[in-house]
Design a protein around this nucleic acid. Structure first.
Lengths: 147, 147
DNA sequence: TCTTGATATTTTAGGTATGAAATATTAGTG
DNA sequence: CACTAATATTTCATACCTAAAATATCAAGA
């Protein structure tokens, strides 16, 4: 097993990801004044059908509970999400996209897709499929090693 | 151009990277009580031959100047690096690995390589080469788009 | 020399991130 | 019913991270 090649591959994956993330961060702030974690949280809510518990968001997004509290605080302050109490279990808070939040999220998701496909558009269709397959395979390998 | 496939590929790259980074973060803290950015900065110093200016570190690591200040503060506090004045230009600070820092870095770099090659070892040699080439190609594409 | 512009670093304000402790609340057990 | 364990969220301390402002210094021209 060529550990130098493994290392080079890892560095290349890391730097590509960092480049794209930085570009997305800039674009999201510029066009929507929203941070990447804030977009991610709204995407998680959208994925869940519009509303979700704090703890479920924490698990889905693979970040700590304490982190979710802060991100929701700022989104709530900006009127994009709201906290609701759950009568049958007073420990729980349900987070929902507000109407404004849902509207903004729709536009953000559209732009996000455009940005990504623009960044990747120069890769040939076949190469892109192959890269995707390689990454799916890598996912499985990593998860077996780590979890 | 299939923008759904582009999006799926991006998400997969992002989640793979996050998984590996999280694992490395845990291992570095457990074995060396050092964070990933701290290791990265020490690696940058090593790459530069042992010492380097703050501004050069900032450029090499692609993070803000202010960030470097904080990371160096903590590494200095822990005795792994030191700041030295440059007599001929008093604006400049030269950061160097201390003897202790160089010794620890040697062990960390070795373990880091082992961890990465262990995480990727199940990928076949040919597949790994192919993945690496795909990522190098992607790098070029992205940089042309962004810079 | 004085001013002006460029360079180098630090500081500040705002936002993420973690893990651990603190708070509430619920649910199960004796 | 009181006690305890489990669950849900927030708070706290620490570390990262950025962009922009502040500070200090250098270098060059009027």
């Amino acid at each position: 097993m060529d550990s130098e090649l493994a290392l080079k591959t890892w560095f290349r994956m890391l730097s590509n990801t960092a480049l794209i993330e930085q570009e997305l961060r800039t674009l999201f702030v510029r066009e929507f004044n929203v941070t990447l974690p804030q977009f991610d949280l709204m995407a998680a809510l959208h994925h869940a059908g519009g509303s979700e518990k704090m703890s479920a968001l924490s698990k889905w997004m693979k970040v700590s509970n304490g982190n979710i509290t802060g991100v929701v605080d700022r989104l709530e302050r900006d009127g994009l999400v709201e906290r609701q109490a759950l009568p049958e279990d007073r420990r729980v808070k349900i987070i929902s996209l507000t109407d404004a939040g849902a509207e903004v999220f729709g536009r953000m998701a559209q732009r996000h897709k455009e940005w990504i496909s623009s960044l990747l558009e120069e890769i040939g269709e076949g190469d892109l499929e192959q890269l995707h397959l390689q990454l799916v395979q890598l996912s499985k390998t990593i998860k077996r090693k780590i979890l």
